[in-house]
Computed example of a mutant assay.
Amino acid sequence: MTHSSPLILTVRHPADSIAVLHVSGEIDVDSAPVLRTRALELIREGRPHLVLDLAPVEFCDSSGLNTMISILRYAKDRHGSLSLAAAPPHLTRLLDITGVAHVIPTLPTTAEALHRIVRPGDSVEGLETP
C-alpha cells in the first residue's frame, strides 16, 4: 500500500496584488480541487498575480496540470497572472513534456517569479534586488 503525502498550502503576501502559494505534498485528482479553490480565493481577494512555489511537490498528475491551466485562465480574466516557481525535476519534466511550461511561466526560484511580476519601484517582501 502506498502512502500519499497530503497537500499542504501556505500563503504569503509579498505585495498588495501578489500572493505566493507554497504547495507541498501531492497534487492529484483528490487534492487538485483544494489547490484550485484556494488559488481562486486569493485572486478574488484582490491578489490577481499568483506564484505557485512547487519546490516540495512530490507528485503531480494530469488533474494538477489541468488545475494550473484553470488557475491561469481565471487570473488572466481578472488582469492577473500565474507563475510557477522552483518545480522539482520530475515536475519540470512533466511541464515540459505536456507543453504546460510554454503556457505558464516556470522559473527556477520564487524570487525570480516575483521579479517577473513586479514593476520597477514597487516594494516586495522577499525579492532580492541587485
Results as ranks from 00 to 15, higher is better:
V51G: 06
T10Y: 02
R36P: 00
D61M: 09
V11P: 03
N66S: 15
N66A: 14
E58T: 10
E41T: 10
H115N: 11
L94V: 15
P48G: 01
A39E: 09
G46T: 09
S83Q: 12
H102R: 14
I117M: 14
T106W: 00
L7V: 04
V29Y: 10
R47V: 00
V20L: 07
V51Y: 06
V51T: 08
A87R: 07
L52W: 06
D96Y: 00
P6E: 12
R119E: 13
L91P: 01
S123V: 14
V124H: 06
V20S: 05
G99K: 09
H90W: 02
R38Q: 15
P6F: 01
A87Q: 04
I43V: 15
L52G: 05
H3N: 11
R116Q: 14
T98A: 07
L84Y: 05
I97P: 03
L94C: 00
S4F: 02
S5N: 11
T37S: 13
V118S: 15
V29E: 07
D96T: 08
T37M: 11
E112Y: 00
P130C: 04
T37Y: 01
P130D: 10
M1C: 01
E45F: 02
I43R: 10
D122R: 09
T67C: 15
V11E: 15
V23E: 04
L95Y: 08
R73E: 12
E41I: 01
G126I: 09
L42C: 08
L91W: 04
H79A: 13
R47K: 15
T109W: 07
A111F: 00
E41H: 12
M68V: 13
H22N: 09
L127G: 06
V124R: 09
T129L: 15
L82R: 10
T67P: 03
S24Q: 14
L127W: 06
A111G: 13
D28L: 02
I18F: 01
E41K: 11
C60F: 01
L54D: 09
A113L: 08
H3M: 06
